[in-house]
Every structure is written in structure tokens, then in C-alpha cells.
């Protein structure tokens, strides 16, 4: 297995293939800044929860680094992400819409994101990936364990490459992405 490209995002740092991007914002504002300066033209971004925003911009930077984006349907690329906090930030956000019986309006848009794997689906929709998608919750960002889990995904002979790695978010200002594009 070989890692071709890697993207790291924390609330105050963005690194693509070892090179830091020069951005000024911090926290969730940083994600919006990445969107505006490097992506754009995908207004659905603003509807996403923080985990999805993080996964979306990280995967965009990763795929821009790969280059030659054509958005043609493909099934040879899997999206398999890992974290510790599942959908905690979205859970809290949705819970606030059902907490008060006097002001009880469960939000469908907020509920949807209480599923951590929505982010793998969003990446697949954006890039028309019809291959495997999965989301796995583990104790900590253990790259050895992650690679072990990804290596077994290549058992599926259709799968030639994987967008994989760590994608965690506890609230709007605390998150970490360390994702990579890997080939068999």
C-alpha cells in the first residue's frame, strides 16, 4: 500500500502534502476560508455540520492535489473514515432542538447529520463514487490500526484506491482531519 497524498487540518493549521497553506482564520471560520479560497461553487457546504464541512474541504484539497478531476462515475475508489467522537457535535446541535418542551421543533436537517457516515456519503455524492463507504469509531488516532483496517478493504478486488484516515470533531472549534489517498 502506498500513500499518494495527505491532508492535515486542525483549527489553526492546514497542511497539504507537507506544505502549510497560508490562511488567516481559526476554527470553523478556517473551514469556510478553505472553502472560499480553494473550492467554491458548492453551496451545500453551508448546510453541513462541522464534521461534514471538515471532511468535505479535506477531501477536496486531497483530490485537488491529485489533480485531473473529471467527476466521472467510478466504483474503484472507497471512502473509509475513522474517529473517536462519532457525530458528537451534530448530536448536541440536534438535541438542542428537542430539549425544551415549550420550544420543541426537531430539525430534520440537524438530525440527518447525527449519523457520522453522512460525511462519507457527501464525499461520494460530490465525486460520484459508487464504491465502498464506511465509518469506523475507534479509541484514538492510531495510524497502524487505521492502515490495518484499510488494508483489508482491498480484499474487494474492485477497490483500487481509498480516501481514508482520521476525521474527528467534538465541537465547532475543535476538530482534526488527517486523511490520505492510498493505493493498493
Amino acid at each position: 500500500m502506498m500513500i499518494l497524498h495527505r491532508v492535515y487540518i486542525s483549527p489553526d493549521k492546514v497542511i497539504v502534502n507537507g506544505k502549510a497553506l497560508e490562511l488567516t482564520e481559526k476554527g470553523s471560520a478556517l473551514l469556510t476560508q478553505i472553502y472560499r479560497s480553494h473550492i467554491g461553487n458548492y453551496p451545500k457546504f453551508f448546510k453541513m455540520d462541522t464534521l461534514c464541512k471538515l471532511g468535505f474541504v479535506a477531501s477536496e484539497l486531497l483530490l485537488n492535489a491529485e489533480g485531473n478531476r473529471n467527476f466521472e462515475p467510478r466504483e474503484d475508489r472507497a471512502v473509509i473514515l475513522f474517529n473517536r467522537s462519532a457525530s458528537l457535535q451534530a448530536d448536541t446541535n440536534y438535541q438542542s432542538t428537542i430539549q425544551d418542551s415549550e420550544n420543541f421543533f426537531p430539525s430534520p436537517a440537524a438530525f440527518v447529520y447525527t449519523l457520522p457516515n453522512i460525511v462519507t456519503g457527501e464525499i461520494a455524492i460530490r465525486n460520484k463514487y459508487f464504491g465502498e463507504t464506511s465509518f469506523i469509531v475507534i479509541e484514538e488516532n492510531d495510524e497502524k490500526l487505521i492502515e490495518q483496517n484499510l488494508s483489508v478493504a482491498f480484499q474487494d478486488t474492485d477497490t483500487k484506491s481509498i480516501i481514508g484516515g482520521w476525521l474527528d470533531c467534538t465541537d465547532e472549534e475543535n476538530f482534526e482531519a488527517n486523511i490520505f489517498l492510498m493505493e493498493k
Partner: peptide, 15 residues
């Protein structure tokens, strides 16, 4: 360009 989740959210808005 709204979708089905947006429609559900508009239903909540009206209520």
C-alpha cells in the same frame, strides 16, 4: 435548488 430535506425544514419553519 433546494432538496427534500430543505422541504422538511420549511415545514418546521411554518409550524
Amino acid at each position: 435548488g433546494l432538496d427534500s430535506i430543505d422541504a422538511l425544514e420549511l415545514i418546521v419553519l411554518m409550524e
